Simulated scan of single mutants.
Amino acid sequence: MKTQTPRSLIFFTPETIEGAAAPLFDAGISAGFPSPADDFKEQRLSLDEELVKNKEATFYARVSGQSMIGAGLEDNDLLVIDRSLEPENNKIAVCFLDGEFTVKRLRVSADEIWLQPENPNYPIINITEDNNFLIWGIVTNVIKKV
């Protein structure tokens, strides 16, 4: 994986590895009573095929901070970001704002754009023409460690 280091996020480009598909047991994993192992039907699953729809426009970045915990994005989670998707109201986006990258929920109304954190301890940011602002990409998935 290649890395670039903007100020607050580290971006990774996806690297496809042939034959890297892992076994998938497509019977569902019970969170209640266990089911007999005989019911499992093994298939192969590639996370690249599941998570990356447009390889040339997809990047990964690690979350830094707590401003999006209400949306389930926590410190050190890995974001899957697609730069080919159109920004829309209510989407979670990685934005370049005044020299730094940030991840926030887009709020678009009439002629205004707001970046809304998902943590009440952080302020909503109103984007004005005075800001150096770019919507860099749309978050499509989050990968967590448990």
Rank of each mutant, 00 (worst) to 15 (best):
98 D>S: 11
133 F>V: 10
106 L>P: 05
9 L>F: 04
96 F>L: 08
29 I>Q: 13
108 V>Y: 05
114 W>A: 04
6 P>W: 13
119 N>G: 14
94 V>Q: 00
132 N>T: 15
34 P>R: 12
67 S>H: 00
70 G>E: 04
38 D>I: 13
133 F>N: 08
42 E>Q: 09
58 T>E: 02
47 L>D: 02
144 K>C: 09
5 T>I: 03
59 F>L: 13
97 L>K: 00
33 F>W: 05
62 R>S: 03
132 N>R: 15
41 K>F: 12
7 R>Y: 14
121 N>H: 15
56 E>D: 15
29 I>E: 14
128 T>Y: 12
17 I>M: 11
37 A>P: 02
135 I>A: 10
45 L>N: 09
111 D>G: 13
142 V>I: 15
57 A>K: 11
145 K>A: 08
143 I>S: 07
70 G>M: 07
14 P>A: 04
141 N>F: 11
93 A>I: 03
7 R>T: 09
89 N>T: 06
26 D>V: 09
53 K>I: 06
71 A>D: 13
138 I>V: 11
113 I>G: 07
142 V>K: 10
56 E>C: 08
109 S>P: 00
83 R>N: 01
110 A>T: 15
86 E>S: 13
44 R>Q: 15
71 A>W: 03
70 G>T: 05
81 I>M: 01
86 E>K: 14
123 P>Y: 12
34 P>D: 12
11 F>Q: 02
127 I>S: 03
115 L>C: 04
73 L>F: 09
34 P>G: 08
36 P>W: 14
26 D>R: 12
94 V>P: 00
45 L>Y: 13
17 I>N: 10
87 P>V: 02
28 G>E: 14
43 Q>T: 07
70 G>V: 05
43 Q>L: 11
113 I>T: 14
143 I>A: 06
62 R>C: 10
140 T>M: 06
95 C>I: 05
2 K>I: 08
69 I>M: 07
94 V>Y: 00
69 I>Y: 03
141 N>V: 01
24 L>I: 03
8 S>A: 05
121 N>M: 13
115 L>W: 04
91 K>I: 00
47 L>M: 13
36 P>Y: 11
107 R>T: 02
108 V>R: 09
58 T>D: 05
58 T>K: 01
60 Y>L: 06
4 Q>A: 02
142 V>E: 08
48 D>A: 03
28 G>S: 14
